[in-house]
Write a protein that binds this DNA or RNA. Sequence first.
RNA 1: GGGCGGAUAGCUCAGCUGGUUAGAGCGCUUCUCUUACACAGAAGAGGUCGCAGGUUCGAGUCCUGUUCCGCCCACCA
Length: 900
Amino acid sequence: MADIQLQKTYDFSTVEERLYEWWEQSGYFRPRGEGSPFVISMPPPNVTDRLHIGHAMFVAVEDLMIRHSRMKGVPTLWVPGSDHASIATELQLKKQLESEGTSSSELGREAFLERAWEWKDKYGGIITEQLRRLGASCDWQRERFTMDEGLSRAVIESFVRLYEKGLIYRGDYLINWSPGLQTAVSDLEVEYTEEIGTLYHFKYPIEGSDEHIPVATTRPETILGDTAVAVHPEDDRYRQFVGQTCLVPMLNRRIPVIEDDYVDREFGTGALKITPGHDPADYEVGKRHDLPIVNALNKDATMSEAAGPYAGLDRYECRENLWADMEAAGLTIKTEEYLQQVPRSQRGGEIVEPMISTQWFVSMEMLAEPAIEAVREGRIKVVPERFAKVYFNWLENIRDWCISRQLWWGHRIPAWHCGDCGEITIAREAPAQCAACESTSIEQDPDVLDTWFSSALWPFSTLGWPTETEDLRTYYPTTLMETGYDILFFWVARMIMTGLEFTGQVPFSTVYLHGLVRDADGRKMSKTLGNVIDPLEIMDEFGTDALRFTLLTGSSPGQDMSLSMERLAANRNFANKLWNAGRLVLNAIEAAPAEPAGDPTRTDSDRWILSRMNQVIRSVDRLFERHQYGEAGRQIYEFFWSEFADWHLEISKIQTGEGGDRAWLTARILVHVYHSTLRLLHPFMPFVTEELYGLLKSACERHPAQFGPRRGWEDALIIANWPEAGPVEPWESESVAAFTPLQELVVAIRYLRSEREVQAAQKIPVAIKAGDLAAFLEANRAALAWLARLDPEAVQIEADLEPPEDAIPLVVGQIEAYIPLEGLRDPEQDRLRIAKELEAVGEQVERLETLLASQFSERAPAEVVGKEREKLEALQGTASKLEDQLATLESGKWRRSQNQ
RNA sequence: GGGCGGAUAGCUCAGCUGGUUAGAGCGCUUCUCUUACACAGAAGAGGUCGCAGGUUCGAGUCCUGUUCCGCCCACCA
């Protein structure tokens, strides 16, 4: 064995960090070369995030694309960065302040923001360090932050432009209010959960009568904000009350009974209380009927002055007290359990209250239209396609976007309120005076923008927009946007809208959406469930490559996947297999002579593996084009393990052992195939492949034969050329077909060995009646003997031969083999085995005969029919051989000696 | 109420231009520490591809319907 001191097990822990630093320092992450570039903007993680499995997913997918593109020789840029995550960060910081016994209000805005920046500086780098751990080959020199100077300028610029175009407005509207966070949130930030609640039925008394209208509500406290009772115009039960006046329970406020066909007569009592201040549907009804709006809640979700005696109570306390009082007043009817959709804040999980409030909005309809067109016309392709439908559906029914947040951490709205005339001045720079009255008593709007407002600009703001920078010219529009489907609306749709609005171009031409990673039981990972898988722990245990390969295979685009430890372990084993196969290849290189004496020709196994290699490269290319990365990875895995390692590497041992020209050519081919596989695999498993590439390269460079690519070795695999298969050659499929009989024969002999419990060490003889395949088998005699553990001296291969007596018969396609081995004979078992095989083959023959006798022969393409016909002929040949053997066995010919 | 996805081996999942004996990993059975690898090697068992129709010479793959599970969107109190 050659003198190569490599451990038997691949130890990723000593490799990953070293290689990453080397790559980064070598500048490999920066775009190189000429031509149309491939660009991805990284979805910016929140500054204060810790690495979670979602990050691992996007890095795996995007880095795969980036590395592939880079190896293709395309100038490749992956722009990294992070997001200030206004609301999430502010929440965390508030928690921290609380633990310190202080609060944001105590600190005041400025001190709070100082703390926020400190926090960002301290924790903001953690996530980017962790992305390095995943192997993300992004251009860190172009790293951006949503609140850095350039991006802030982009935010202000876009706000002002939208405002000037009349697409931003401010006003009092019903918005979702988060009482705990004390801010408005957008529709998207509200999640509806199905919960069992109570439906309260009660009486709405008619003024000046004993009659009442029965009404039902899930939120009795909102009764205090009612401004009408509505009934269906054709509802005979209540029609007579329309136009009369009801009295709000406990307040005796007078409100009208109105008619509106929004009311569903079938549901509940068939009459509806209208609370325009606290219900979106009621708000619409209120607008139609010009009803007043009563705001019954304060910002902290306690009851407002409008609630009269209940003012100051918490909303739920009020609900209880009010209901008790109503009960005492005889106004209640009944309560019942009711399954309802409860709106909860995506952040804190608290129940969100619809509330009237002064906020800033973006008018979306005009922005949505071009965004719809861009996808419809195919200027943006969505992968998988089905999400385009979801995208259209959302944009076609889009509602205005509430962009103001009553928070401090974020981009402050560039609006200045005049203390004198009340006018608002919108400006790119802080103005000195009011634009309307020139008063200097102006103050900037306290609100900040929704964090997604700045993210929406990400693909171009990171490249310098609004300045026409070199980067913007070169790398915009970007090529592809890759992210989870869960932020299609939050982010992707908005980027498309702003991209078209501000740059006049689509921000990217493909949207690739990956699925969500779930736990082994298919559940969503969440902190409350306690089933969160920490990628850092996974990487410690299995290595980054195993994690990445696991995330990339075994799923298809947009499809959720479960992460199982079994698959992680299997892929860690795969990395180890690569490693050990590498060691063998290195041995073969060491063993090879400096140069061939003659002109060695390839063996059948050589031709076979080279053909398969080309086929796999083509297949992988095809799959990559269609974003079928999982299937591509699977095919490389199968090829490497089940074909290259299991067959060709085994045979190569024989070939290397022959020495001389054979050993030289064998090494050369091993280097080629192994090198190609490393390159195919590099985007999936960057670390182990780079490490092995280094070992392969130096072994080849040390060796006088100078094996390796014609263009020479690159310094690193990360910048090596993607393998090319060239056009399909006829010899490829021929070589693959030619090799099959050898494999089948080997498997058959191994089966027999296993069946007869032959010791592994025992080399057995065989006589082979090979017909047309005699020359082929003769050429592969050594390989056959090695693979099937035969005694090379006792392998007899003839086109035709008289079956030896007292031998175990085997039929493999067109080949008959006889194993003349005393101790192993068991004619009865042979008979059973052959009968069974004959039955199976017979069934196939019958099936094919029927098939070929049917319309199939006329209707199916000649090629397909021909293939089946050939198959039938081969099977018929096999069947007749089996029949012969069976007849011989039954005649007792081979039984004679048993009775001796 | 709309829309989408899933249902394939005991388990977790691939299988994307329909081609006729459906694959992998794990698990299971038997053997082997054979000079790359026991994170391995060899052999094997195991599936009417949710159900019902249809199109087709041919369907896991296309169409229709249907059941169960999951997700998204939506103003039934």
